[in-house]
Design a protein around this nucleic acid. Structure first.
Length: 571
RNA sequence: GGACUCGUGGCUUAGCCAGGAUAUAGCGCUGGACUUCUAAUUCAGAUGUCUCGGGUUCGAAUCCCGACGGGUCCGCCA
């Protein structure tokens, strides 16, 4: 059974079009496009054929259209200017869409298994304080992408790369071990520890003795001192636990954690350095090994890329090369979700990994920063909006709305709805924007529950659920009874879901899925307005509409699930 | 200074990779729809030199070059 109900129509249209074209003596191939509203379902442009056949495009379209025989899949095919447009027979489409969704249900939209195992590395934030809204774009993109790629038939593993070797983590540990906090500490561990990091950073900047102590700790750490490693890791783990707790609330979970220090302590970084040292494109300068980037097309001041310090100790990107070699040996594809500040580094790590003999590429996805209206966010300076505060605020606002709209619901139900709406709205509002566009964080946008938002989709899903709750189960349905334009438009939308998932996976972009979810919800709302279900004219029409409602509910559910957003039965 | 990236109604945004038929939507604005399966909904209307200038093309929001504006990077930090 076909997973994609549109595929059979598309193939048929292509075959008919090319048969007609062959009849005119042309071997040319044309790819169908999606025409504007009301002009059918597949459009074949005839511009490219104009040159070969030496006739105007509109002429060719008319001839081809005339040569296409009547076909049961299509209600009509017509030439419209320079295009040949195919209109899918609405009854056939309705039938194909409904049977595809109702057969696959929760799995509708999933592709056949590829047999490939992928790793999506995301978040990987320095464990020196709680996640802020700027960084939150990373886990939301990463988790959504993992869900999309999984529906595309891959086995997907998500991983958090824990940077436990950085100066920031040592600074945090120095703070925890040397500073005494006055007053009450915040309850959540990451929020409690960030004070030590901020305070230690401040002291380090004004007091050279503090700086010296921290530098001494770093030196010891780099000599692979196990005791200090344990002290630093302990604090990293505490902050990490706080971060993952916040993310869990948005249904973001990690399958594994890779600790940066591991690659130092188990000797893989040393092996990587030995191999790099032997290459022609590396050289040393006062004991420091560097990679000459000029021959890779990266010129200017950044053409010398340092791999070690003068004392031979490794640098961040070198350790990243070791990590990526390990990843690529374990998985068929390695995808990294990275902030735009990592663009150059990611390129260099990619070059390094290739030089070290790895054939598979690292596939980075970049996103631009989320800033505040008054400037960029910084944990060190404390100019941030913490993710936890945003979640609290969003859930509280959702709670107010539920209280206002559904006072009769039980306490437990209201709490569950507020949580789903509050966290869903955050995920949606971040994922709906293309990753590479920069965003300015505004509370009013982040807490938008109307229009293009998660609650809009959740609300439509709840409406569908409500109808199904009140209806008695139908035995069978006749898709031919569904002929209202709103019903047809909705069915066409439902039929598109598998190709939307595929497109998101191929282009590795998540914002298209949010847009699709919104479109389906909007189509469902129009159907809801135009076509009464429970009080339909007769029993047969009611059953057919119940089938359409059921299918719509599954598609909205699947789209929301792929976006990592809960779909409550009631709102 | 060099490199990368983004620039689409008042605000936010899709389309750009694979150029083609009236540029997608949301917010906001004006006006309408709750005796109707949940109005977090819906309908109508106003709002655009697709940053600017060149080029390629029968045809450019889309490709190329240049400029301008925002962001980011250019450390033996991470």
């Amino acid at each position: 059974m076909a997973t994609d109900p549109l595929a059979i129509f598309k193939e048929r249209a292509c075959a008919l079009f090319h048969d007609a074209l062959a009849g005119m003596g042309s071997e040319a191939k044309a790819v169908p496009e999606v025409p504007p509203e009301g002009m059918g379902d597949f459009a074949f442009p005839c511009f490219l054929l104009a040159k070969e056949l030496r006739r105007p495009p509109a002429d060719i379209a008319a001839s081809i259209s005339g040569a296409i025989p009547q076909d049961s899949h299509f209600s009509r095919t017509e030439a419209k200017g320079p295009y040949v447009n195919f209109h899918i027979d609405p009854a056939q489409l309705m039938s194909a869409a409904l049977s595809a969704v109702l057969e696959k249900r929760e799995d509708y939209g999933n592709a056949e298994p590829t047999g490939r195992k992928l790793l999506v590395e995301h978040t990987s934030a320095n464990p020196n304080g709680p996640l802020h809204v700027g960084r939150a774009r990373n886990p939301i993109i990463g988790d959504t992408l993992a869900r999309i790629l999984s529906r595309c038939g891959n086995t997907v593993v998500t991983e958090f790369y824990v940077d436990d070797m950085g100066k920031q983590q040592v600074t945090l540990t120095w703070g925890v071990e040397n500073l005494k906090r006055a007053g009450e500490a915040p309850h959540k561990p990451d929020h409690s520890l960030v004070w030590y990091y901020q305070e230690a950073s401040r002291l380090m900047a004004e007091d050279p003795k503090v700086l010296a102590q921290i530098d001494a700790m770093i030196a010891l750490y780099e000599k692979k001192d196990p005791a200090i490693a344990e002290r630093v890791r302990k604090n990293c783990q505490i902050v990490l636990d706080g971060m993952t707790a916040s993310l869990r609330r948005m249904d973001i979970n990690f399958d594994s954690f890779a600790w940066e220090s591991r690659y130092i302590f188990d000797g893989t970084v040393d092996r990587v350095l030995d191999e790099l040292r032997a290459l022609k494109c590396t050289a040393e300068e006062e004991g420091a090994l560097y990679l000459n980037l000029e021959e890779f097309g990266i010129t200017g001041q950044e053409s010398k890329f340092y791999l070690t310090r003068g004392d031979g100790s490794s640098l961040y990107s070198t350790r990243d090369m070791a990590y990526h070699l390990d990843k690529l040996s374990r998985y068929d594809r390695a995808i990294d979700v990275l902030g735009e500040d990592h663009r150059l580094k990611a390129r260099v790590v990619g070059i390094g990994v290739k030089l070290l003999g790895e054939e598979k590429p690292i596939e980075p996805i970049f996103y631009s920063f989320v800033s505040l209206p008054e400037g960029k966010m910084s944990t060190r300076r404390g100019t941030v909006v913490y993710l936890d505060d945003l979640i609290e605020e969003s859930v509280a606002r959702a709670r107010d709305e539920v209280e206002k709209r559904r006072p009769e619901l039980s306490e437990e139900l209201k709490r569950g709805i507020a949580e789903a709406v509050g966290t869903g709205a955050i995920r949606y509002n971040i994922i709906r924007v293309q990753a590479e566009k920069q965003m300015v964080f505004k509370w009013e946008d982040a807490l938008n529950f109307e229009g293009n938002s998660a609650p809009f989709v959740q609300y439509s899903h709840a409406r569908a659920s409500s109808i199904l709750r009140k209806a008695t189960a139908y035995e069978s349905y006749d898709p031919c009874l569904l002929t209202h334009p709103s019903e047809i438009a909705l069915a066409k939308g439902l039929a598109r879901f598998p190709s939307v998932i595929r497109e998101c996976g191929v282009s590795m972009s998540c914002h298209l899925l949010a847009q699709y979810a919104f479109e389906i919800a909007s189509l469902f709302n129009q159907f809801y307005r135009d076509c009464p279900v429970l009080v339909a004219a007769d029993e047969n029409l009611k059953n057919a509409r119940l089938a359409l409602v059921t299918a719509s509910k599954f598609v909205m559910l699947n789209a929301l699930d792929t976006l990592g957003i809960m779909a409550p039965e009631e709102l």
